[in-house]
Simulated assay, not measured.
Amino acid sequence: MVLVTGATGTVGGEVVRALPAGLRVRVMTRDPAKAAGVFPGAETVAGDYTDPPSLAGALHGVRTAFLVTARVDGGDDAAFVAAAVKAGVRRVVKLSAAAVLDPGADDLLTRRQRANEDLLRGCGLQWTLLRPRAFMSNSLSWAAPVRRERTVRALYGTSPNACVDPRDIAEVAVRALTEDGHAGRAYTLTGPQALTAAGQTRELGRLLGIPLRFQELTPDQARAALSGRYPPPVVEALLASAERQRAGAKAHVEDTVRTLTGHPARSFRTWARDHLEAFTPPPDEPGPHPQTP
């Protein structure tokens, strides 16, 4: 049996959808009602990293597990790994981040990922680490202003990032979960090219059939916008990450997706075309209308 954590999030949900039909799949979530009916054929169980009995129940009979954690100030990885060892899990595939390889990255989020990678490497289980660049789906945060104002706002709009489609991350995760030969490996995952926020804005505009305006935020404006969504330590970590991107630290492209899946990494244009509805206003709302790709 395969256990998937974070299934109601970006990558975890794609992993569940990409797992082969007929495979026994269990989804762990804090809120089973949220996942009910979303993943037909998968077993859904309640589980919380802070609740050891729930972890033991979720991991019972599990052979491989996909691990996604998000809390900065918690011991979620340690709790999960301890429970996995006790339950007799064979392999854990961990979602980490490409920044762990950057010696200049010393922000809170990267330090947490490095510590969690060290924890997994030393636990005695088979492990595989996935280190993606930024998700292409992060641009969904632009959807509302694109629909309402035909505007994208972002920090350092001309700085490149080799962002990756979450579906490609999921395909690699599925291979690591279901195939031999991935134990003890760490995979850096990127898209096929480094893109800027301004370039992504132009691509969205072409697909929608209308010009979009890009408005660059100042660091103070970006801090104010992020402060409405994240605690202060996370905000500062994200701003430090943006500075490294501006310095070119996130522009390198890897061919890992093609090597492991047999197909090239999906382009941003492909991702945007497949999610164009999110950027398109409903018929009764004024705004752009998509062109036929």
Score class of each variant (00 low, 15 high):
residue 173 A to F: 01
residue 165 D to Y: 05
residue 279 F to G: 07
residue 133 R to C: 08
residue 7 A to Q: 06
residue 219 P to Q: 10
residue 105 A to F: 08
residue 192 P to W: 07
residue 37 G to I: 09
residue 163 C to W: 14
residue 250 K to G: 00
residue 192 P to M: 02
residue 216 E to T: 10
residue 246 R to F: 05
residue 107 D to E: 14
residue 231 P to K: 09
residue 137 S to C: 04
residue 118 D to H: 06
residue 133 R to A: 13
residue 17 R to I: 04
residue 285 E to C: 04
residue 237 A to W: 06
residue 164 V to Q: 12
residue 117 E to Y: 10
residue 57 G to R: 15
residue 57 G to E: 14
residue 9 G to T: 03
residue 10 T to I: 11
residue 185 R to D: 10
residue 180 D to C: 11
residue 264 P to T: 13
residue 57 G to V: 06
residue 175 R to E: 06
residue 73 D to A: 10
residue 71 R to M: 11
residue 150 R to F: 03
residue 106 D to V: 13
residue 58 A to D: 03
residue 34 K to S: 08
residue 5 T to C: 08
residue 270 T to D: 12
residue 120 L to A: 04
residue 57 G to I: 07
residue 127 W to E: 13
residue 97 A to C: 11
residue 256 T to N: 04
residue 174 V to D: 04
residue 143 A to D: 09
residue 156 Y to L: 07
residue 155 L to Y: 10
residue 271 W to S: 14
residue 245 Q to M: 05
residue 166 P to Q: 08
residue 257 V to Q: 02
residue 201 T to P: 03
residue 107 D to Q: 07
residue 47 G to F: 12
residue 146 V to Y: 10
residue 95 L to S: 07
residue 264 P to V: 09
residue 236 E to V: 08
residue 52 P to D: 02
residue 50 T to C: 10
residue 94 K to Y: 15
residue 52 P to Q: 09
residue 139 S to C: 14
residue 101 L to H: 15
residue 238 L to Y: 11
residue 246 R to C: 04
residue 187 Y to W: 13
residue 219 P to S: 05
residue 193 Q to G: 04
residue 37 G to Y: 12
residue 69 T to H: 05
residue 205 G to I: 15
residue 150 R to H: 11
residue 251 A to Y: 12
residue 230 Y to V: 07
residue 103 P to L: 06
residue 171 E to S: 13
residue 119 L to M: 09
residue 241 S to L: 07
residue 272 A to L: 04
residue 197 A to N: 12
residue 159 S to E: 12
residue 209 G to Y: 00
residue 21 A to Q: 02
residue 132 P to M: 10
residue 197 A to M: 10
